[in-house]
Structures are given as C-alpha cells and as structure tokens.
C-alpha cells in the first residue's frame, strides 16, 4: 500500500453569498500526478489554494503527509487558524507554483531558491546554495543564479519558480495554472520540465487547461464543476469513450 500524502474531506468555501466549493473529497498517494480540470469559475483554483490555506475553507478537513490543517470555526462558521506554527509546518510540507510566477523581485534567482530552505527550514546557507545550483541545472537555468527576475522571460521565471518549489523537497507540489501566463512558444519548456518531475515520482496536483498534458502525464484526472468533483478517473478512462457526458461536453468546448 502506498503512503497517503493528501487527504481532503468535505471542503466548502463561499465568497459572500457565492458558494465556490460545495464539498470536495480527494486523496493523493505518493507519486500521484493529479490533473484538475474545469471551466473558469468552477472553483478548481480556489480548491488548490485551500490546500495550503492561502484561502481558509469554511468547512472540511485537510491532512498533508500526516499533518492536519489547524483550522477551527467560530459559531458563525468563519474559519480561523488555530495554531500559526502548525500552519507554517503544513505549508512547509507543500510548495506552490503560481500562474504569475511570483518570484520575489528584490532577490536574485539564487536567493529566491535558497530563501525557504534557509529561513524556514534552517538549512545552512552554503548547503542550500549548492543544492540550488543543482536545481538550476535541472530546470535548465544553470548560469542564471546571479540574475534578477526582471531580466528573465516568462518561461525562464516559471522554471526558476519550479526550482524554488523543489528546494525544500516538498511532499506535495501544487501547480496553479503554471502555463497560463506564458507565451505559446514558452509553454513547452515548462511542460517538459513538469513531465520530468512526474517521471521521478513527485506527488503533484496540477490545475491546468493543457488537455494533452493531462492525458499523457497525469495518473488521475479530476473534473471540477460548480464547486464539486463531477467525475474523476485515470486519463485512459476519462479521455476514452466511457467518460461522463458532462466531461466530454467540457472537453469539446
């Protein structure tokens, strides 16, 4: 039996009167590559942002690599962080790659990568820098350590952001539409890199619009619609003739 890395039960989330998530359960085992698909406004990005508590879910439980999300709810149902230290511990087990890269613009490429290992995990700086150089080589950005983010193209920034995410060797990697802000000719370099990560057994949750990537790389496809999981299964099934009609309609869109 493979180890369960992520265990989500009954996540709901509303923004004002609008219910964005209406009860989501999901498990991920080590090595799973889960592609989360859905139309805009389906709640897929909100779901991802709930996992590392960038958004606080109104209800439900989250457990990542054995650590439970420290959520409590007051009498009106508003969520609150019970224990800030547990929050940071939970986040430290995950890493997120954003649509807009969100590299820290006042740090060099190298400093971006060593920031979390040094300042969150207490790794000695020299050790973190050595590892960062290896990661830069891995993402095809060797020689860019001293560059500033503004000097890089979108695809290069996203590859650095992925190196930054890998720097803490996270149990779970969250990708929030990682190629949506890229020029079409830059999409490939990022997808190829993500495919390599999948091949080495990383546990990844990927919100994406890249259907071919989801079909070829993921171990499971999840279709989110109106804040619930409408259907899910291995890509062979989901993209095959027996897929749910709703998902087929979404694909043909």
């Amino acid at each position: 039996m493979t180890e369960t890395v992520l265990r989500v039960r009954g996540i709901t989330k509303s923004f004002g009167a609008r219910a964005v998530l209406r009860g989501i359960d999901l498990d991920a085992h080590r090595g799973d590559v889960i592609a989360i698909l859905g139309g805009s406004g389906s709640g897929k990005s909100t779901f991802l942002r709930c996992l590392n508590l960038l958004e606080l879910p109104d209800a439900g439980t989250i457990e990542i690599a054995g650590a439970a999300a420290p959520l409590v709810h007051d009498t009106q149902g508003r969520a609150r962080i019970a224990d800030p230290r547990a929050l940071n511990d939970l986040r430290a087990k995950t890493a997120m790659v954003f649509q807009n890269f969100n590299l820290w613009t006042h740090m060099t490429v190298l400093d971006n990568i060593v920031a979390a290992p040094v300042h969150v995990h207490g790794v000695p700086r020299a050790e973190a820098a050595d590892r960062a150089q290896a990661l830069l080589e891995k993402v095809g950005m060797a020689g860019f350590a001293a560059h500033w983010p503004r000097q890089l193209s979108g695809g290069q920034q996203q590859r650095v952001a992925i190196a930054r995410a890998l720097a803490t060797d996270p149990d779970l990697m969250l990708f929030d539409e990682p190629t949506s802000a890229l020029d079409p000719e830059r999409v490939r370099e990022v997808l190829d890199l993500m495919r390599a990560l999948a091949d080495e057994g990383r546990t990844m949750l990927i919100v994406t619009h890249e259907m071919a990537f989801a079909r070829d790389v993921s171990t499971r496809v999840v279709h989110v619609r109106d804040g619930v999981i409408e259907s899910m299964g291995p890509p062979a099934l989901m993209f095959g003739a027996d897929a749910s009609p709703v998902f087929r309609a979404f694909l043909s869109h």
């Binding site: 590392n52 960038l54 800030p84 230290r85 940071n88 511990d89 939970l90 986040r91 430290a92 995950t94 890493a95 997120m96 954003f98 807009n100 969100n102 590299l103 820290w104 613009t105 006042h106 920031a115 979390a116 300042h119 969150v120 930054r164 803490t168 969250l174």
Partner: peptide, 24 residues
Amino acid sequence: GQIEAAMAAGMGPFARFRRVIAPQ
C-alpha cells in the same frame, strides 16, 4: 502574489515581513 509565495513557502508573519515585505 509575492506575499502569497512567501506564505506558500511556509514563512511566518515575521519572516514574510523581514524577507519579502520590508525590502520592497
């Protein structure tokens, strides 16, 4: 987004302020 990236990396409020917010 840069503050969110710091949160996602597990930085607490003090580290976020010291490493990301204050310099900018």
